[in-house]
Design a protein around this nucleic acid. Structure first.
Lengths: 211, 211
DNA sequence: TGGTGTGAACAACTTCACAGCG
DNA sequence: CGCTGTGAAGTTGTTCACACCA
């Protein structure tokens, strides 16, 4: 297909397809049609075909898609055929939970450096092996490392300052768990993970439903 | 304004406005214009005015919006003028972090009941006061309670089964932290909080940027 | 035959631009 | 005068419908 701008939503869906395909591969499914996959993902089949068509022709007419092959292609498109190293800032409840979360590792994401400001924490070695650095050491720790992503798990009040430090240290992409809108320069990618916004959405729906 | 369908994105933004306004109120700001608020939120000013216009006329022409008044109105619209009780399923790393997270309480969300299947956990009392129930007790625990939301913090493999139990027990809205697309009947609201999808987005952006 | 790939129709959301009011 | 509220224009994303090919 000729080159065109790719919707952000398409990338999010590719990630979802990838997960569905992984499950299917585990179940031993070899081939799947867009209708079936659509059902699994809760997405329109034409949408799936269009999303894939942005990047090439991966299917066989009259048949469907080879599960393993499609999975491989999607991972390649998303850039998951390499390991991504991340810096984690904020080793509170959430930060610790993220470190313990095994889904990251499985997908090729790794917390290669961790930071906090609490003197009681700095210097300690985590069960996962990393030593907690002080925030002020960030530049030198990230220097020469191939850490390209930062994860912010601090209180909202500190998130903006931490973002600036990460960016100054050369990080180009930030996953932000703090409930704030970060202000970042052009070219820096930010994704927010925002429980409270999601809860507010649910509250609104319930309120509407109840009248 | 006449009645019309309200974009889902509008509700998400209302939640963001609400947070910005809270900060502004704390800083002692009394009045704010859509341009200023837009700057704070990283959103187009016309978008803000349009979002608000779905629900009424809250501003003063030539002046702006009264911060406290607008905050109150937005919270009323979202349904945050009441306390919401939630059931939490899955007391692993993530579940524990959520329980310890104080942002929920501040916003009027409360974990009124918690569940797990691990015999080592069931029966224990948490620091936050709740006793961990077995998943099988859900019906009777939720019976007669005013718990309307469920939060799933289990492994992906169990999420669908847990969702069905929550729905059977009368829950109408689900916040899903497990990396799966839940299949739910019409009328049940689901919001997904999905780190790995967000990370995949960042990976894609970095991959594109690097070429 | 059956399911992909895709132009064209459609729907939704966002931004503009300005009338109108405080 | 300045900023809101809003119709109209513009943009973006989704779904349809079918030609086309394995």
């Amino acid at each position: 297909m000729k080159f065109s701008k790719i919707p952000a939503a398409t990338i999010t869906r590719l990630s979802i397809y990838s997960r569905c395909l992984e499950t299917l591969a585990q179940e031993g499914v070899k081939i799947i049609a867009s209708d079936k996959l659509a059902q699994k993902c809760g997405i329109n089949p034409a949408q799936i075909r269009k999303d894939l068509a942005y990047f090439g022709e991966f299917g066989i007419r009259g048949v469907g898609y080879f599960v393993k092959e499609l999975l491989f292609e999607i991972k390649r498109i998303l850039g998951l055929n390499k390991a991504w190293k991340m810096a984690l800032v904020g080793i509170g409840n959430l930060g610790s939970a993220l470190l313990a979360h095994q889904n990251f590792v499985r997908q090729g994401y790794e917390f290669a450096a961790v930071f906090d400001v609490d003197p009681a924490k700095v210097g300690r070695r985590l069960p996962s092996g990393q030593v907690i650095h002080h925030l002020d050491e960030m530049d030198q720790v990230l220097q020469g490392s191939d850490i390209e992503m930062g994860v912010i798990a601090t209180p909202a009040s500190q998130a903006q300052a931490v973002a600036q430090r990460l960016i100054a240290a050369g990080v180009k992409a930030i996953l932000n768990f703090a409930p704030t809108q970060l202000q970042v320069p052009e070219g820096i990618a930010v994704e927010n993970v925002d429980f409270t916004v999601k809860l507010d959405n649910l509250a609104y729906h319930l309120t509407m439903a109840e009248g």
